[in-house]
């Protein structure tokens, strides 16, 4: 094929466009990452001098440490409860009640329709009506509500891909429904359940809006602690925290990818 000048121009403009889009998407992250190493306490860009002290502050500021552990507690409980409840609900609807399928669709779409602050506010009102305090159970309950649709969705997709004849074969071999669930259904749903759990955990750990309503000084999660910090101080500590967060997430995802296959975990594999 002949490479005419017009052709070359087209190829180069294509490459430049791709680079521009990439830059556009990554720019905020890059700016924040550079800021994290800024020696100055003001959020100035570009930095005049370099330092690692904001990283040190991010680690030593006690609200962040507590927020991290609070967030981890809330995330583990919320995504695990959501996994059990959501998977059970999805399996029950899938198996027994086709009328409820439209209800399921409603639930699955609800995160697009109901904003997080509505859920936070709603839970807060209900809790004060019931006289419940702003403890961990309240935060966890809120997060369960938020992530449930995602767990149900991934369970449901896996169920749709599960060959029903496997369960029939098991029952013809003498297995009771409970045994079929434990030996056939759940093992085969495991990638879907794991992916649902992971989605839920990531969402829950990062959740801010609803958590702001239902958490207290004692139960605030990392994002809430960061919000409170930025209202008081204007220094690059948050930028340092972002860099740490991105690095840790990337590490975890590469591990998950190496051991389990990210496509499988995120359910983006075509079945």
């Amino acid at each position: 094929m002949k490479r005419s000048p017009a052709n070359m121009a087209l190829r180069w403009s294509g490459r430049i466009l791709v680079a521009a889009i990439l830059l556009f998407v990554l720019l905020p992250g890059i700016v924040v990452a550079i800021t994290a190493f800024n020696d100055r306490a003001i959020l100035a860009f570009p930095p005049q001098a370099w330092s690692l002290r904001w990283f040190w502050r991010a680690f030593s500021y006690s609200d962040f440490g507590r927020g991290f552990w609070n967030g981890l507690t809330v995330t583990l409980w919320a995504s695990s409860i959501a996994l059990v409840v959501g998977a059970a609900f999805a399996i029950a609807i899938h198996r027994y009640n086709f009328v409820l399928k439209s209800l399921l669709e409603g639930i699955l779409l609800s995160p697009l329709i109901i904003p997080h602050y509505t859920i936070g506010l709603g839970v807060l009102i209900l809790a004060s009506q019931a006289g419940a305090g702003r403890g961990f159970p309240l935060v966890i309950l809120t997060h369960v509500l938020l992530v449930l649709p995602f767990v149900m969705r991934s369970t449901f997709i896996s169920l749709e891909n599960l060959d029903g004849r496997l369960e029939l074969a098991a029952s013809s071999l003498g297995a009771r429904p409970g045994r079929i669930l434990l030996t056939v259904t759940i093992p085969l749903l495991l990638p879907g359940l794991l992916s649902g759990w992971l989605f839920a955990a990531i969402l829950s750990f990062n959740e801010f809006t609803a958590t702001l309503f239902v958490s207290s000084q004692a139960t605030q999660t990392l994002p809430v602690a960061m919000y409170n910090y930025v209202r008081e101080f204007a220094d690059p500590t948050l930028a340092a925290l972002s860099v740490i967060y991105i690095a840790v997430t990337a590490l975890l995802l590469s591990l998950a990818n190496a051991f389990l296959g990210l496509g499988k975990i995120l359910n983006v594999d075509a079945h």
């Binding site: 060959d163 004849r165 496997l166 029939l168 074969a169 098991a170 029952s171 013809s172 071999l173 003498g174 297995a175 009771r176 429904p177 056939v184 093992p187 085969l188």
Partner: peptide
Amino acid sequence: TPAHQREIGIVFQNYALFPH
């Protein structure tokens, strides 16, 4: 009688072997 009590062997067209 439910299927699991009928003591019937069945072979499906797609075999339906437990993949795990």
